[in-house]
């Protein structure tokens, strides 16, 4: 068994554990932003796509890399933007109507 595999599994196991701990604290209220947020983060495959698109192996690899960069950028840019757009909408406010009703 290669060292790389064992090393990778270490990171994987610990990251999964941290992920599970952090994510189990997200209230159901925010499950949609959670999903689009993790989706933006998993757009990190952009870094792998960048290498493929930039390493100049041959035309076939470059085209695949180009499509991969495009798809991953859509997720990164779109994912963060829409998560922010959603979070902006979650407001806690005293409904003005309620205040009036009391008077």
């Amino acid at each position: 068994m290669s060292q790389d595999l064992v090393f990778g599994l270490y990171i994987f196991a610990l990251a999964t554990f941290v992920g599970y701990q952090v994510i189990s604290r997200v209230p159901p209220l925010l499950h949609t932003p959670l999903m689009s947020g993790t989706n933006a983060i998993s757009g990190i495959s952009l870094v792998a796509s960048l290498v493929v698109a930039g390493e100049h192996h041959d035309r076939f690899a470059a085209v695949l890399g180009f499509i991969a960069v495009t798809a991953a950028s859509i997720n990164v840019v779109g994912g963060f933007m829409i998560t922010d757009r959603m979070l902006r909408m979650f407001n806690k406010k005293k409904a003005p109507a309620l205040a009036k009703a009391g008077s």
Binding site: L50, A53, G54, V69, A72, V77, I82
Partner: peptide
Amino acid sequence: EIVSFEWIIAGAILGSLIGTAIS
């Protein structure tokens, strides 16, 4: 490993535009 940028730039711009438009 990254030696050329034209595919990267093209993909990143296209992807960002589409991502922004959708969101």
